[in-house]
Design a binder for these strands. Structure first.
Ligand code: ZN
Ligand code: ZN
Ligand code: ZN
Ligand code: ZN
Lengths: 166, 166
DNA sequence: GATCATTATGTTATACTATAACAATCACTT
DNA sequence: AAGTGATTGTTATAGTATAACATAATGATC
């Protein structure tokens, strides 16, 4: 969303993304008097392993490997907490979860999702929100949450000729 | 989306909405050489029974009553056809389906969804799309589909004091 | 430190949503 | 009438998410 965010640039140092996300989460939890417990931290780390949204059930094996209970409620509870804190977003059209690069302030999330490589990049939705607010105001509707999920082809997949029909 | 669409006005003649939707569907199917079979027509009618999105499994009892097979594939196939023809939209955040008032031309759908009365109103997403296109262009992303789902309070539910926290 | 209330996790079961696979039937063309 | 493709019936299963209750860990209070 900011200039320094990697977007769809595939050659960034992703270990840095992960380390940064974990550190931010720790800091925010401390100031918010919330607990980033081991299982929550692990789920956050797993969600951040790459920029592709992960389904809840894809996380369970790794939880089992780490010695945690790996029944669905465990991962869903962790994901619920992480969402409440703004550390991850749920992508409804994929039933999947992805790390948020800017959890320090709550925001309306929007995503560009590549149908080929499956990466999802969070979008600055300022202008989209303005447009939505106007439309909603016309109808007298009071916005509380927005979900914007755009599917298409990322720059890498366009140039690599992956633009065959889905 | 157009001026004459009811939006959140609850006192419109909804039988007219239904009749209109069915007639439009019949006409479009004829020109498109598609078949609006009895089960498809029934599902379309059921989805249009009100302006609240309906889950697939909520349609099954009515299918059984009408003498159709009421196993899930029946309704999912009908919904798939109706979506392909643009007669209904799926709302991903609700796992639910709602009739489209303007199936005559394909369009990117957006919805305002009231968290209190559960009604969903389709939105003109022209300005939203413009904003999205700009953001996407900056990142080199090629848009193919857009999903915009906004949750909040409709005018009726705001004035009737239903604006307690969810 | 012991007590207590609160929060978090473990565990089992189940609800909800959607599709796979194959058989039977229907509709249209030849 | 026969053949072909589309549609529907049927059974089974995959995939996603939560309910309910037991147990354990945490943090505040005495
Ligand atoms: Zn990264
Ligand atoms: Zn891609
Ligand atoms: Zn209506
Ligand atoms: Zn309402």
């Amino acid at each position: 969303m900011n200039q320094e965010d990697p977007g769809f640039e595939s050659d960034h140092n992703h270990q840095h993304c992960i380390a940064q996300a974990l550190e931010t989460a720790h800091t925010l939890c401390r100031t918010r008097h919330q607990r980033l417990t081991p299982v929550r931290e692990l789920v956050l780390k797993l969600v951040w392993q790459n920029h592709q949204p992960l389904g809840a059930y894809e996380l369970l094996p790794a939880l089992a490997d780490a010695g945690f209970n790996s029944a669905p409620p465990t991962v869903y509870r962790a994901l619920e907490f992480l969402q409440e804190q703004g550390f991850v977003h749920r992508i409804a059209s994929l039933n999947a979860y992805v790390g948020c690069p800017h959890p320090e302030r709550p925001h309306r999330s929007g995503f560009l999702i590549c149908r080929n490589c499956k990466r999802a990049v969070e979008l600055n939705t300022h202008d989209v929100h303005s447009a939505l607010k106007d439309s909603a105001a016309t109808l007298g509707f009071e916005i509380e949450q927005e979900m914007v999920e755009v599917v298409g082809l990322c720059p890498d997949c366009r140039t690599s000729g992956a633009d065959h029909a889905q």
